[in-house]
Structure formats: structure tokens, C-alpha cells
């Protein structure tokens, strides 16, 4: 799914990576705890989170994830936007809650990781 389509579905604002909305992501990965993203996130995922701090940028960076969407109307401060831009991340902001965000994207065909089970 193209990020541009995601932006429209979520009525989102773009604060970093405006020129890269043509990029495609294949998976949705939703969590407020970064260890979950670190464990299961894939490079072609969009990271959906309501957590707003620098660790989200670090987590995306470390997991090779290129796109983040902050949910629940969270606004990033300058440091976060700067870090995202420095690392060529695409960052969207939506006022929707996490539930509505996941629901809309899933309904339009964005996939999740499937059954995880306990693999740790």
C-alpha cells in the first residue's frame, strides 16, 4: 500500500519525508511498546504507535523501518522531527485512535504479520 493512500485513509499530516509518499509498505505493525516492534517489525512495515519520544525514531532506525505513523493526535517536538529527517524516515501524524487506524488500514488490505504465538 502506498504511503500516500495511507495518509489519505488516516487523514494524516506529513512532518517528514514529504517527497517519499510514493513508497510502498506491505505490513502494519502496531504497538506502544518498542520491544514488540524490535521483535517483530520488518523493514517493509509501517510502525503505528501512540508513543511519542525519541525512542520511536531509534527503534525504526534500528529495525530498518522507513515509515512511522503516530496516532492519537500526538505531536512531535522539534528534536523528534529533526531526528526523523536526519534518518530519512517518513513520519505521519493522525488524530485517530490506534483502533480506528489499524481497522481502516486492515480493511483496505494492509497485512499484519499473522499468527505469532509464543516464540520466545
Amino acid at each position: 500500500m502506498k504511503l500516500l493512500e495511507i495518509k489519505e485513509l488516516l487523514e494524516a499530516e506529513v512532518v517528514s519525508g514529504e517527497d517519499n509518499l510514493d513508497m510502498e509498505v506491505n505490513l502494519g505493525c502496531a504497538a506502544d511498546l518498542m520491544s514488540d516492534i524490535l521483535a517483530y517489525g520488518k523493514p517493509d512495515s509501517i510502525l503505528l504507535t501512540g508513543l511519542m519520544n525519541l525512542q520511536v525514531i531509534n527503534t525504526a532506525n534500528i529495525s530498518d523501518i522507513k515509515a512511522i505513523c503516530f496516532v492519537r493526535g500526538k505531536k512531535p517536538d522539534e528534536n523528534i522531527i529533526k531526528a526523523a529527517r536526519n534518518n530519512n524516515l517518513i513520519v505521519l501524524l493522525t488524530n485517530l485512535p490506534m483502533f480506528e487506524t489499524c481497522g481502516r488500514l486492515y480493511k483496505k488490505g494492509l497485512k499484519g504479520l499473522g499468527y505469532l504465538g509464543l516464540d520466545m
Binding site: D32, L33, M34, S35, D36, L38, A39, T49, L51, N53, Q55, V56, M120
Partner: peptide, 8 residues
Amino acid sequence: LGFGAGMG
């Protein structure tokens, strides 16, 4: 802060 769920 997004950590501390026993997954580290």
C-alpha cells in the same frame, strides 16, 4: 516510555 514489558 514504551519499554519494561519483560521483552528486552
